[in-house]
Design a protein around this nucleic acid. Structure first.
Lengths: 212, 212
DNA sequence: TAGATTGTTAATCGATTAACAATC
DNA sequence: TAGATTGTTAATCGATTAACAATC
């Protein structure tokens, strides 16, 4: 469990919301000097209470009678999310998703340093996408042993996702962003974020169908 | 609110879990004839109670003393998710993400029919990606008026996301899968699913940092 | 039949919202 | 000073888990 300002546990739901707060303060920057929890709640379509309680897990960022200073909060949330520290990332799978993410500038702008791509197809090895070289998947263990990699993005077919995940864990990767269409079998506390695109579009289609 | 088998409201969290159940029954198909809520709960890392309660919103699919028949449940969940009906989809934005999704076969396999891509860049117009033609964004309103489009995938820069979303709503799109890095301002009940890739990787990085 | 396991209701847990003293 | 608004605690709401009668 992750601890907040005075040793209190921060609920997972709150952690998942922090990037969204950052987005709003980033957007507010230049638009306003300060904002109250009430107004921010309206903007974000949540309650003032939730805004105040969420932020209070991380620090006392506001001021009575004034609200939250936009520049300050953007800076504080940026620090919490470690925006300014380069975090080294590799992508496994140079298919559609892997390539798109490699070219995706927003990832670099958020402080992530794309180090390498890995794929199994011999024809791809040595190719460069946005200056990132594709290596053969067999080189993955030795690459991980000689580089300090924080995050691996998994964009491989579901059939091999767990095999790759095992190698990643064994060789010291700290967390996985999983785009493959399966749930990874990793120890309970190992950091994983799943992006299940098909699950999302199926849920959307179900909601639409039920709306008739 | 979406109603279940006897008029009861199905919580949003349950709806979002249904595609995951489908994945597990799809995977179990061929591996086993039947499965109990207890075993499925273990497999999915949740409780037997949750499995039973979730599924019971949609029907009485199990049998005492036996469990759930895998083939039957795969079929039932497939029907619920409308896997077998073609749903017509367009993608707005022929950048990295839009192109990757167009080439992404899993979307077609899940019953979605990619009809067209739209972009603002003149140089792209007329190009075909996986047999899907790129149209100019100005043609979007008339295209929507002459085609029955269920879902639009929004993969455009955040600065224009809400402008595009407005056109989509005005011209009868039923739901949006949003990849743009902003929250769309749409009526509360309009079906939206957000895939905020940057939010996910930032949350992951935060969890990793806090794990030290 | 006896054991297994469902669907459902009740109990518990956790997350959200409301209330309010503190204070800028 | 008076009004505004915070951070926090208490009350409420909703989701998860436990319990169990029904029954295959």
């Amino acid at each position: 469990m992750i601890k907040g300002k005075d040793g209190s546990n921060i609920p997972k739901v709150v952690i998942e919301r922090i990037p969204r707060y950052y987005r709003y303060f980033d957007w507010l920057d230049g638009q306003a000097e300060k904002i109250s929890s009430k107004k921010l709640g309206e903007l974000m379509d949540t309650s003032a209470s939730q805004v105040r309680l969420d932020l209070s897990y991380f620090g006392d960022f506001g001021q009575q009678g004034y609200g939250y200073n936009v520049k300050k909060l953007k800076r504080e949330l940026g620090n919490i999310l470690d925006i300014n520290t380069k975090k080294q990332v590799i992508i496994i799978g140079a298919g559609n998703i892997g390539r798109a993410l490699t070219r995706f500038n927003a990832i670099k702008e958020a402080g992530f340093d794309l180090m390498a791509l890995f794929d199994v197809k011999p024809i791809l090895i040595g190719e460069r996408i946005s200056d990132v070289e594709i290596h053969h998947i067999e080189e993955l263990p030795s690459y991980l042993d000689t580089h300090e990699i924080s995050i691996a993005v998994l964009a491989v077919p579901k059939q091999v996702a767990n095999d790759v995940a095992r190698v990643l864990l064994e060789h010291g990767v700290k967390g996985i962003l999983n785009f493959s269409r399966t749930d990874l079998e990793v120890p309970k506390e190992f950091p994983i974020e799943n992006i299940h695109i098909i699950d999302k579009i199926l849920a959307l289609a179900f909601i639409i169908k039920s709306n008739v």
